[in-house]
Design a protein around this nucleic acid. Structure first.
Length: 768
DNA sequence: CGTCTTGATTCCAATGCCAA
DNA sequence: TTGGCATTGGAATCAAGACG
């Protein structure tokens, strides 16, 4: 098997488990010792473009060569550089590999191409036929050993030559760049921390250092610090140039240096030593050239020129910000750096950001599920309560930072960046939305004391994206905080005796057991049902929503299921044309394509409707984010008819309009009986809003309700869509008394900060 | 021309320290 | 306690060259 094929197989395998996977897939016994060394030593990780880890690589090769399993000869067929990352990986299984580094100068193909034959290597698995075959370029193991004792020098040289990162026309904005560009060659470096003091002479990329207890050696900057006994990987603050200037301070100065000032001159100014003259002069030309180009640029005004200079020398975050501001783009979340803002303004910004982070806990409802994520995986789960998070693993109340520490990432110290809500947005992202929102609406009050919630919350919760126009309450991040289920003013009562008492036994039933009708959601005492001769229930119905309280509900359920069975029904062209004339929208353009509507039921028609319901679910999620009942997101329960809280959401059906099998408009429908039906949620895809599709859907829903002789349709409308429901669809406000009456008889869906509307149907509406 | 392979670049998570 | 900011290192992506 070639290495490339192997790399494809192992592409998705984590480094730590490579050996195990190799064993499992290919039956090879991996080199356990090497594998463990790999896991335990971070320096073993090969870093592309850098030379760290090569020493270990060499050690591994030595181990490989000295092992008795190492073959006596090998061949190479191509003179390309080996995939070094793969070499590092497969070293874990090195006893099963043959390493080839033949004298490739003898190979005509390599001569022809003129490649760097010194670093040409090729690996094959031991059982490869290529390895077994005879070859004139068979190498000598001893030669390989000699060459591989210093593999890093070859690779370093190669990388240094080819790397664009360290070219001379860029300021040395990192320590690595500073060390590798040659400017500091021959200067002495000191490493000072606590009592540790090392001395280092910079010599190109290879660095010599010496100290009282160690011999001269060649290491790299990171190893230099490791050698000094430091536990951290942070050398920037402890490495000094000529015992005076911290390397990092020098790098920082390069970030501030005007373009005209040469790096060499700056170094001399700061440490009083002349840097490498040749290198300094080499730097001079490209810098001057760039400066001249900027000055002679005819298209740039002075502002743009300075901006370009800043872009050239500033760190990436600042470049991003500047670029965004130049193009009038919204600032990316999480970046609070602004190039042009004053230090004071910057400070204010930071302070405000902190405030907004803390405000999150005031805005989110208690019980909101919060999860700590690392590498895309949920580490810890909890629920928001007050200003703390109730950890679900230990039931303790923790602050955001404690929650982070509890999740095992106390060193991150960025809890708001890693704690996510159940709809996939981090607390920081929400805070950023708050921040931008506040900046855009300076008159907005963050905490509306009278309402008890911020206007931000209200707008997000109230986004009801049913139909006509796109909602301007969508956040710039494309999410909504979700709808919050409003608990009924009472828990309901028996439809017959109006008594609310009920036993909670879940086994046998008795007279006081309360049953829910699966269609109208009315409640009945088992005893009352028997006393009034309605029915004599002996056992608890299972599933609960299969019990229907009477003939009317049975007929309604049957009618609805018939509509579901009918499947997709095409919308006649005449209707589409009439819609075009009424809404003047893009519906007309779709008259040539298939537009149909359909009634779906995840509860009673789950398998056949599954894919369509997934589409519908996605549209609802785009429009509302989530629907919370307590801490639980019940949107899926409502749309898919999942079991669990059937007494609240039993009898839900999903009506959809689709264009070419792609759903564009959806609505949840529940018919409680002949008296009333409800439309708790309705939404249209972003790209189809304002094109009349929801109007078609609503027309079909009206037809269904008329067919079943339903008298009223009710729905919860947010402030944004209120006028649309009233003016376009003829809804009227429900009085408090009427709402209470509906709540008494049915488990109607109500959301916080919505207005309940009703549309009475005239009896003369024609049946379909 | 398609596939294989590499190096360069970019992005992002992890980490450490400082400071508010 | 937590934001800011730096570096390091891994992963993903892209462009380009080699090769059949």
């Amino acid at each position: 098997m070639s290495l490339y094929a192997l790399s494809k197989v192992l592409k998705n395998v984590s480094l730590g488990s490579l050996a195990e996977v190799m064993e499992e897939k290919f039956g090879y016994l991996a080199n356990k010792a090497v594998n463990m060394a790999w896991k335990g030593n971070p320096m073993m990780h090969y870093n592309k473009g850098k030379s760290r880890g090569q020493k270990h690589f060499s050690d591994l090769l030595h181990e490989l060569q000295t092992s008795k399993n190492f073959p006596k000869g090998a061949r190479s067929t191509r003179a390309v550089r080996p995939p070094l990352s793969l070499i590092s990986k497969v070293n874990q299984v090195s006893r099963q590999l043959v390493f080839c580094d033949v004298d490739l100068q003898q190979c005509p193909a390599h001569k022809k191409r003129g490649v760097d034959i010194k670093s040409s290597k090729e690996l094959y698995l031991k059982d490869s036929s290529k390895v077994a075959s005879a070859d004139p370029y068979e190498s000598n193991i001893g030669d390989i050993s000699q060459k591989l004792k210093t593999p890093h020098s070859l690779i370093c040289q190669n990388n240094a030559n080819s790397s664009i990162k360290y070219t001379l026309d860029r300021p040395p904005l990192t320590i690595s760049c500073l060390l590798t560009n040659g400017l500091l060659e021959r200067l002495l470096e000191h490493y000072k921390k606590d009592r540790i003091k090392l001395l280092r002479c910079i010599k190109g990329i290879g660095i010599s250092f010496g100290c009282s207890s160690h011999h001269l050696n060649e290491v790299l900057s990171l190893n230099f610090e490791k050698h000094g006994g430091a536990s951290s990987m942070k050398s920037k603050d402890y490495i000094f140039l000529n015992d005076k200037l911290a390397l990092y301070a020098l790098v920082e100065e390069f970030g501030k240096v005007p373009l005209g000032l040469l790096p060499g001159e700056l170094i001399q100014k700061m440490i009083g030593c002349q840097p490498n003259d040749i290198r300094s002069l080499a730097w001079k030309e490209p810098f001057h050239r760039k400066e001249i180009n900027l000055q002679s640029s005819t298209c740039d005004d002075g502002k743009n020129q300075s901006a370009h200079m800043l872009l050239h020398i500033r760190p990436r975050a600042e470049r991003l910000m500047l670029s965004a501001s130049e193009n009038n783009l919204p600032l990316p979340p999480g970046n609070s750096v602004e190039v042009s803002v004053s230090r004071k303004a910057k400070k204010t910004m930071k302070h405000r950001e902190l405030d907004f982070h803390q405000q999150i806990f005031e805005l989110l409802n208690d019980g909101t599920k919060l999860s700590y994520y690392s590498h895309g995986k949920e580490i810890l789960e909890g629920y928001k309560f007050g200003k703390n998070i109730l950890c679900s693993c230990c039931n303790s109340m923790l602050s955001a930072s404690k929650f982070e520490a509890h999740a095992g990432h106390e060193k991150r110290r960025k809890p708001y960046h890693s704690i996510y809500t159940s709809y996939g947005k981090s607390l920081h992202q929400i805070a950023m939305f708050l921040l931008l929102d506040d900046l855009n609406n300076k008159d907005m009050s963050m905490t509306d004391k009278a309402g008890g919630k911020s206007s931000f919350t209200l707008r997000c919760h109230n986004a009801h994206n049913a139909g006509g126009q796109s909602s301007n309450t969508c956040s710039p991040f494309g999410f909504q905080l979700g709808r919050i289920f409003q608990a009924p003013c009472n828990l309901g009562c028996c439809t017959i005796c109006r008594g609310g008492d009920a036993t909670l036994n879940f086994g046998n039933i008795c007279d006081s057991t309360m049953l829910f009708c699966g269609q109208c959601c009315r409640m009945f005492h088992v005893g009352c049902l028997r006393l009034h001769g309605i029915c004599d229930i002996k056992a608890r119905p299972s599933p609960p929503d299969t019990w229907l309280c009477g003939d009317k509900c049975i007929k309604i359920r049957a009618d609805l299921l018939n509509f579901v069975q009918d499947g997709p029904i095409s919308i006649p062209e005449s209707l589409l044309t009439s819609m075009h004339s009424s809404v003047g929208s893009a519906v007309h353009t779709h008259t040539q394509i298939d537009v149909h509507w359909q009634l779906l039921s995840g509860r009673f028609h789950g398998d056949k409707s599954k894919l369509l319901l997934q589409q519908a679910m996605k549209i609802f999620q785009e429009a509302f984010g989530a629907v919370y009942k307590g801490y639980r997101d019940v949107l899926s329960t409502m749309v898919n008819g999942e079991k669990g809280v059937a007494e609240f959401f039993g009898g839900m059906f999903c009506a959809v309009v689709a264009v070419k099998s792609k759903i564009v408009s959806v609505a949840l429908l529940r018919v409680f009986g002949n008296h009333v039906a409800e439309l708790p949620l309705a939404a249209t895809t972003n790209d189809r809003r304002g094109q009349g599709f929801f109007k078609i859907l609503f027309l079909k829903i009206e037809e269904i309700l008329s067919f079943m002789k339903v008298e009223n349709l009710i729905l919860p409308a947010d402030d944004h869509s209120l006028s649309m429901w009233v003016q376009k669809f003829g809804f009227i406000n429900l009085s408090t008394e009427e709402i209470r009456e509906y709540q008494m008889n049915h488990r109607i869906v109500m959301f916080e900060n919505t207005t309940m509307l009703q549309k009475p149907f005239l009896p003369q509406v024609k049946n379909p």
